[in-house]
Design a protein around this nucleic acid. Structure first.
Lengths: 338, 338
DNA sequence: CCCCAGTATGACATCGATGTCGCCGTTGCC
DNA sequence: GGCAACGGCGACATCGATGTCATACTGGGG
């Protein structure tokens, strides 16, 4: 049936204009509610548009208006990780208020993939690009930044490039975790961290170590475990730590995944070490887990805000926003050394 | 500095062609690696493109190629809810394999907003539209479905419209939860559900009620609580239920939020009722919470698959995929009535 | 009564790419 | 030696909208 074929094609503005008996330009004016259109003409055009099921072609409009879309790109890790999804949620909310839409892509923690995703976004002429980078080197973005596409880095500082960033006070949070445990009387404190090459992890390690040094404590040193990258590995690592003689009396885990692993390892232990985890998580209150908390949604919101200011024409040097952290004591971090 | 101004405009293919000393069309051929371009010409064009920092304008390309983008839209609830983010993650992974990008927007559980987001997506000429609907009536989408934009409904069936859908076996899962508790010897079983008007909730209620009827049990009836919509409300509701005389000996909560609320309410109780929750959640194993689990990521993956098949030209009647559920016993659902 | 301002409209160029078609110069084959 | 086939390339139209400029008509002021 040819009628079907006709049906799958969307009507163009030209067709609407023809049906309404006006010129293309007048139809455009009517639908955009520009001034200087006779009321009756306007109505006729809109009726024609409705009856045809016309919908503006945003691609064509954007090409004409300057080859830049109303999209903002986010390249991050898997949204299944609650940290990333909280950030994405904050971004989306903020963008929506300005009529911008969010495109997301998962870099699978792969620098190569990240680069090609950034490329894909740039080809689609996103208005801004938000990145929670996995790659270490961001110099390849330098040219772009100067070409009118604002970049904002989230959670990790840009490397080899001046760009806006929203970071967490990693060192501060980790220092306060260390101090909290020291204040509880702990000395043999284990540190379980993720990949050391990632800046936030490095910051957290440094902050913790700083607290230890400041207190003149070096009993933690045998218990340092870095480059632990997933829940299973964290669980295994914590089990191994607890089997040491003497075992640590407290553990500090530097992100939500590692904290989860530690909790699993502690499940069947008789004597529980103290535990403080970086990143708050759902139901931590029920599990009584003491954490270094921060507002992940705010990270996204602030990043989107910075991006929007750049889109709106703000120029000036790169800015960095640091999101503060706070310790939420729920019991696990307050267990005393035995 | 005028050099700056020049810098913010992206070079066009015409400029690349001029620099390489060839025609626009030849430059296009070279960059797209079409046949019939002399190797030396190709190299010259690519060098020119690199030196100018040229990047293809996807908007223009898509306009020319048929006014349809390489984007797929997802309208859902807040990504901060792990159910939605798991679904989004599944979708994005699947789409990426086909070179498609995901645009997300949060409907804030508001039918009006949802409609305008769908509009915005359609204007941007998404290739397909995935919806976890909040609105009840989807007839307004009927015209669109016939215009070549495939729709896939997730978690909730389309209403007044034939479209592909990926659903959870809500009734089946809830029935097995009911049967599980009955088998444990429970009779006074409370049902705490979210908004009854939402199809998944209705399905879960019906499944549970069906199990009760089949067993000839009506002792649950005084403990039915529907239209509980957030964590706080769920916590309060469960507290009230437990204060009844006699109290229920078991509770079935019909989604992850309500389960969270119930867990909070149970925290300080002396005698614990059995608890089964619909939706699995992170750390449920540590909390020992028995749940009706399903693979949320698979929902997204399957929906993206259906959409992709339609994009690739598949026609035929609307299909519905039902994701199965299974009970994961972790202790809370196996407590016996006291 | 004329002129000017302002309103309503349309013709045409344009955004940046790709598709169609045709031209020119080599080959290769009969 | 002539001709078909093909490789390499460019001129031009095109996708669907918006911006610019021109034009016709209306009404009001001098």
């Amino acid at each position: 049936m040819p009628a079907d074929d006709a049906n799958v094609r969307r009507p163009t503005l030209t067709e609407v204009a023809a049906l309404a008996g006006v010129s293309l330009k007048t139809a455009s004016r009517a639908l955009n509610r520009e001034p200087n259109v006779a009321p009756s003409t306007g109505r006729r055009v809109r009726d024609a548009a409705d009856s045809l099921g016309y919908r503006l072609n945003g691609i064509a409009r954007e090409l004409r208006r300057g080859a830049t879309s109303s999209l903002v790109g986010l390249v991050s890790g898997d949204l299944a990780n609650p940290f990333y999804s909280a950030v994405a949620s904050g971004i989306e909310r903020e963008l929506r208020q300005h009529g911008l839409l969010l495109i997301t892509a998962n870099n699978d923690e792969d620098g190569e993939l990240e680069r090609s995703l950034v490329d894909a976004f740039l080809e689609r002429r996103v208005r801004a690009l938000l990145v929670i980078p996995s790659a270490d080197d961001h110099e390849y973005l330098a040219i772009e930044g100067n070409r009118g596409v604002p970049f904002v880095f989230l959670d990790r500082p840009p490397d080899g490039l001046a760009a806006d960033a929203v970071l967490i006070d990693n060192a501060g949070g980790a220092r306060s975790a260390g101090e909290h445990l020291l204040a509880g009387g702990h000395r043999r404190i284990a540190l379980v961290s993720d990949l050391r090459r990632m800046a936030p992890q490095k910051g957290r390690i440094d902050g913790f170590v700083g607290a230890m040094r400041a207190a003149g404590n070096d009993a933690w040193e045998p218990y340092l475990r870095t480059d632990v990258h997933d829940v299973r590995h964290a669980e295994r690592t914590v089990r191994e730590l607890l089997a040491l003689d003497p075992p640590p009396t407290a553990i500090f885990t530097t992100n939500n995944r590692l904290t989860t692993g530690a909790l699993r390892a502690l499940r069947d232990q008789e004597t529980l070490p103290a535990l403080v985890g970086f990143d708050d998580f759902d139901l931590a209150d029920l599990l009584g887990t003491t954490v270094v908390a921060h507002d992940s949604t705010a990270i996204g919101r602030e990043a989107a805000r910075l991006a929007y200011e750049r889109i709106s024409g703000h120029t000036g040097p790169a800015r960095t926003i640091v999101i503060s952290t706070s310790i939420i004591a729920r019991g696990s971090g307050e267990r005393s050394p035995h």
